[in-house]
Amino acid sequence: MGLLNKLDDPYYGGGIILGKVEDILNWGRSKSDWYLQFGLACCAIEFMAMNASHFDFMRFGCIPRTSPRQADFIIISGTVTFKMAERIKKLYEQMAEPKYVISMGSCSNSGGPYWEHGYHVLKGVDRIIPVDVYVPGCPPRPEALEEGMIRLQEKINQQAIFNKRKRIAEEDKQKELIINN
């Protein structure tokens, strides 16, 4: 929220906002995330509740898209069976960059109730696609999914757009320094 905070700052008053282009782009990106209309198991019911008027997913700027090519992120809401896992991977690969993944519920986080005897369940969707936000619960309440969405927006807000390689390399170097010390 770097951009909007500047409105409160008297130094920048008079209707002039000084900020980085990156902040504006990220602000727009994070506030209009479109998701792939895709539900899997019982968690999808909670996900549907999230879409309905009471919890109102659309106030986050999230609009369902029925094509992966138009979607910014995908919510893996439920049990990922092996049969479905291959299709999820295909859908994820069809999405355009930048793309994000929210893993919703114990099942897609780690196999959930099927972790031990589920011969047919992939034990965590992060074994096939990278996950940005994990939402715990079986099923998570819509409030929990809201929290996950806010976390995803925070993540998008902090992402580098320009000089990406250079900046990521610097950050990696700093992380290494922290780890080594």
Partner: peptide, 9 residues
């Protein structure tokens, strides 16, 4: 294993 995906936890 199923299609390269590990089955046990």
């Amino acid at each position: 294993e199923y299609h390269g995906m590990k089955v046990p936890y």
